[in-house]
Design a protein around this nucleic acid. Structure first.
Length: 234
DNA sequence: CCCTGATTCGC
DNA sequence: GCGAATCAGG
């Protein structure tokens, strides 16, 4: 397999969306996890939370009867780049997913920032995150286990006033829709915040998305295009 | 053991 | 440029 533009695009997309190299490799097919990682690095994609990165802050070696183990293999041309103030890696405070304005946390709703009009109007491209933490695509994505009993009655949840602002993680409660809007990590990531459909974690509208009727085997709509609808949901 | 990503290095 | 082999942490 070769790295076509499309495959690279998918790689980038998935990599940036947090998919693991294995998932990406699986999605692309014909390539190994290593290939994906290798390619990702060659593409200059920044490294993501790796389990192998905790080695820091400890100058403690293994003196005990063990050689300092200078260089395992290739010797790096140290003198090559003299002035390279490589930052020793700061403790970097990760940017909060939800923008938290230090002053005046939740007030001044006078900000004319669009208070999310109709959630369903911007579905075409949006990729939301389901409860499991996996990404899901708006239209026509698979839904494995058919969950709970259908709602007895759909109550017309009316726009609650408490969502004049964006509903952040901290704003979640038993009464507001927990449906994620956007991607975690993105500056505008937030939750629906609509009044929930009683008995469900989501509003009526998102209940419709979360709990979809299981279509007959034959009548299932396969997602052929799939430029990458999200990580496998197997 | 499984998983993860990082790195190396022969091709 | 590619990716298997290897490394190393969780």
């Amino acid at each position: 397999m070769s790295w076509t533009d499309e495959r690279i695009a998918t790689l980038k997309k998935m990599w940036e969306s947090g998919s693991t190299a294995s998932q990406i490799a699986d999605e692309l097919g014909g390539v190994s996890r290593n290939a994906v990682i290798g390619k990702a690095h060659r593409l200059g994609l920044k490294s993501r939370p790796s389990p192998v990165k905790a080695s820091e802050s400890k100058a403690a070696k293994k003196p005990t009867s063990a050689a300092p183990k200078p260089v395992p293999k290739k010797a790096a041309p140290a003198a090559a780049t003299p002035a390279a103030p490589v930052a020793p890696r700061q403790p970097v405070t990760p940017p909060a997913p939800t923008q938290a304005p230090p002053p005046a946390p939740k007030a001044a709703s006078s900000a004319p920032s669009q208070p999310m009009p109709n959630p369903s109007s911007d579905l075409p491209k949006i990729v939301s995150v389901g409860p499991g933490g996996f990404l899901r695509q708006g239209p026509g994505d698979q839904q494995a286990p058919i969950p709970p009993a259908p709602p007895r009655r759909l109550v017309p949840a009316k726009p609650s006033p408490e969502i004049a602002n964006k509903t952040s993680l901290l704003d979640l409660s038993d009464r507001v829709c927990r449906w994620p809007m956007g991607h975690p990590g993105e500056p505008d990531f937030h939750f629906c915040g609509e009044a929930v459909n009683p008995g469900f974690p989501y509003c009526v509208e998102h209940c419709g998305r979360a709990y979809q009727a299981q279509l007959p085997r034959g009548a299932r709509r396969p997602p052929p295009p799939l430029p990458f609808g999200g990580p496998r949901v197997r």
